[in-house]
Design a binder for these strands. Structure first.
Length: 337
DNA sequence: TAGATGTTCCGCCATT
DNA sequence: CTAATGGCGGAACATC
């Protein structure tokens, strides 16, 4: 069974945002272990070609029928503001929504949803440039101007282009779980250039989980990275049994608790390798490994080279600001979700 | 190198 | 009735 995704395009659409949709929903992913995946159709009324920003044209493969019949409709941003939307387009959107489809917008795409009356009295967001206009035109919308994206059930809206990517990943997470979403993200976010093999992929940092007890345990663990810590300890600080903790952690984070924790330790060591001259032995101890051997093994496993080789590669090109390791989870914990 | 010992993690299932 | 919980056991892996 395939899940039908329809992307609605217009003159003036932002091809980057359409690209996000194509990348996430329009490509086969045979490498993923999932029972079903998405089938994308790029749609416009009468399949009329749409001029994209940047001066080229997109030829839709489907008309509005595909929109009405879709399981998920996505509206990428388009500077809509002056013209009214064609009634058939709005109808197709309403039909899809009434039939239980999810309706998603990126950036200024909300205007179309609003025009169709789908976001009245609902929470939504958009790019900050459009906040004022949206407020004036559709005062009934409960606008959350600060959010990256808003998930209001079957209506999902997002802010600027990159937030659209976050929202699409969020949808994949909803549909297939966190582990698969992380997998997809890992394939999208390719490492900055590095000589040699494909080591050192930058993994997308996981969003902090909703469950406060989980965050609490993670916070606690991060605050004492170097101390000996067991699964039972973590579970205890989350006020759960080890079994339940393991289960909930996996659902929320997409990794097992100890795999996550080991990773945090290795991540923490990156800064020490880059910014200090302490020995590998010392660093291993400083981030909580019981032996340098264990540290080396973990490090090679995650980064494909030895700690010393990693340090050397950083020193060799100190000005390459673009290159950086994974964002430590700690920095994300403070963020709103 | 081999082997004994410990830990994690996940499917299964009774219980809440 | 369904959903969540947590104990148990064993495979996989790590450690000594």
């Amino acid at each position: 069974m395939a899940h039908r995704v329809a992307a609605l395009v217009f003159d003036g659409l932002d091809p980057f945002e359409l690209g996000i949709v194509v990348e996430l929903f329009g490509l086969p992913r045979p490498e993923l272990d999932v029972p079903w995946w998405y089938e994308l159709a790029v749609c416009a009324q009468d399949r009329a070609p749409a001029r994209a920003m940047g001066g080229f044209t997109i030829e839709p493969s489907q008309g509005l029928d595909a929109v009405a019949a879709a399981d998920t409709v996505i509206v990428p941003g388009c500077p809509p503001l002056e013209r009214p939307f064609p009634e058939p387009v709005l109808d197709a959107l309403r039909t899809a929504h009434a039939g239980g489809a999810r309706v998603v917008s990126i950036c200024s795409g909300v205007f179309l949803l609003a025009a169709a009356g789908l976001v009245d009295g609902r929470r939504a967001t958009t790019h900050w440039r459009f906040v004022e206009t949206l407020r004036e035109r559709y005062p009934g919308v409960d606008l959350d101007a600060g959010a990256l994206y808003v998930d209001d059930g079957e209506i999902l809206t997002s802010a600027g282009s990159a937030a659209g990517l976050d929202l699409c990943l969020h949808i994949v997470r909803r549909d297939h779980g966190t582990a698969i979403a992380n997998d997809v993200a890992r394939r999208l976010v390719i490492a900055p250039h590095r000589a040699g093999d494909q080591a050192q992929l930058v993994e997308r940092p996981v969003a902090p989980p909703d469950d406060r007890r989980l965050r609490q345990a993670m916070d606690w663990a991060l605050g004492r990275l170097a101390e000996p810590t067991t699964l039972a300890d973590l579970a205890h600080h989350a006020f759960m049994s080890p079994r339940t903790f393991t289960r909930r952690f996996g659902e929320a984070v997409g990794q097992s608790p100890m795999a996550w924790f080991l990773r945090q330790r290795v991540d923490a060591s990156l800064a020490l390798l880059e910014e200090t001259d302490r020995s590998v032995e010392e660093i291993a101890a400083a981030v909580g490994f019981s032996s340098a051997a264990a540290y080396r093994k973990q490090f090679r496993h995650r980064h494909g080279l030895s700690p010393t080789a990693y340090r050397r590669s950083r020193r060799a090109s100190p000005r390459r600001v673009v290159q950086r390791g994974p964002v430590p989870f700690a920095r994300l914990l403070g963020h709103a979700h």
